[in-house]
Amino acid sequence: MRACGWVLMTNRVSVVAERVTLLIPAALRMHCDGADTLAVNAGTVRAALAAAGKDHAALVQHILTRTGELRPFVRVFVRNNDVRGLGGLDTALNDGDTVAIVPSVAGG
């Protein structure tokens, strides 16, 4: 059973919204009230970020450029794989997927 089932229109493809979890790294938690995970309903990575951005705009500004592209110092992994090798921000999500946000950090 899918957790929910409304339909979003993304790039003219209808996508069923799934219950997914965004993993927020410590470096970005200040932008989402300290949460280490955010649960959203979304059918793609882009939609998941958009859903998170409704309440946490600053978080998404650190992940996406103004034109909505992934910043080159942030990687997003779905099912442990880099979305650049999948469908990019349009990578489809399955119910229960985790979407990991990983920014580059330089501390040593």
Partner: peptide, 11 residues
């Protein structure tokens, strides 16, 4: 904080 190790693949 959560004592998680996660491994991600990249090309």
């Amino acid at each position: 904080l959560n004592m998680h190790f996660r491994e991600f693949n990249f090309d």
